[in-house]
Design a protein around this nucleic acid. Structure first.
Lengths: 163, 163
DNA sequence: AAAGTGATGTTATTCTATAACGATTCAGCC
DNA sequence: GGCTGAATCGTTATAGAATAACATCACTTT
């Protein structure tokens, strides 16, 4: 066991958020797509939370920020854009969204979700990708979107629960 | 590539369903839980379809069978029971349910879901299980419920699409 | 039969997501 | 600047998935 993921260690998370936003701007301008103010705010909200955020949580926070609340489609459209650009992930098991920490890789990634503290961590574990590819190949299945979401207890919550 | 999964080959599916129902009865009586008429009907419906069924699909079929339709809770309770007993799986990416083909194994299993024909196949690929276990262990995460759902094209639909 | 437990029925509601349409904004061009 | 087409966002209504809360029924045990 090498080291706990960053999300589970104390750190100045504002730096992560800033870095993610800057990186997103670069990516979008490089691709000629527009990271509008709304999309940036949604991305920021998603990134600020280590716990995956539901679309209606985002809606709630947006409306607290500026008095009036947009409709759900406004948020879902922003999220759809961010998903297309690979800047956020959607966790099907939680109906929630999470900032993508590995936008340089195309693949789906794997997610470890703590049932206690609700923190979700993204991994890029190539052996898992390969195992899935092999399993699929063995029955002639062509993988398009692998999705791995593992529910359990993070390291920190294991020690807490034992205490 | 060894062989296409049974679900993708022609076969007398009634046999599968019958076998699954008998097996379920044995399991339930062995555990001292009741596989009631409703639960058995829901299990049968889920098994009859190789395509994962939504709870409201089940509701619809139940109401067609006997005129009057129960409420959603009735179906969800039956599904909860079947999930607890490991007789069906829930696919989070589809909000749908599928008969468990490997009830002897406790683990989650892996699901290959064809985006074309919507057939879902369950695998028990130990290398994938192990890879996930290793990935989790490397960050001190204790796995409880691994979930692998792979969207793609089944072998049959690949040849169809090429044609 | 009485009591207790588990299973089901029923109604209402919450949460998640999208359809459809109108209004606005933005980039490129005259 | 002003025009135009396309993308973005706002708004309303609705679909889809799941659960809360409470009433009723059935089955077992005594």
């Amino acid at each position: 066991m090498s080291q706990a993921p960053l999300a589970c260690r104390p750190h100045n998370h504002d730096h992560c958020v800033d870095h993610a936003l800057q990186d997103a701007e670069q990516r979008c301008s490089a691709r000629g797509v527009r990271l509008t103010e709304l999309r940036k705010r949604v991305l920021e909200l998603v990134w600020q939370s280590h716990q995956p955020l539901g679309a209606y949580d985002i809606l709630e926070q947006l409306s607290q920020q500026d008095g009036r609340r947009p409709g759900p489609p406004t948020v879902y459209r922003a999220l759809d854009f961010l998903l297309e650009q690979g800047l956020v992930h959607r966790l099907a098991s939680l109906n929630a969204f999470l900032g993508c920490t590995h936008p340089e890789h195309g693949g789906g990634g794997q997610f470890l979700i703590c049932r206690q503290c609700r923190v979700a961590v993204e991994l890029e574990h190539s052996a898992t990708d390969q195992a899935i590819a092999q399993a699929a190949a063995s029955v002639g299945f062509a993988v398009e979107q692998p999705m791995v979401e593992v529910l359990g207890l993070c390291a920190r919550c294991q020690t807490r629960e034992g205490a």
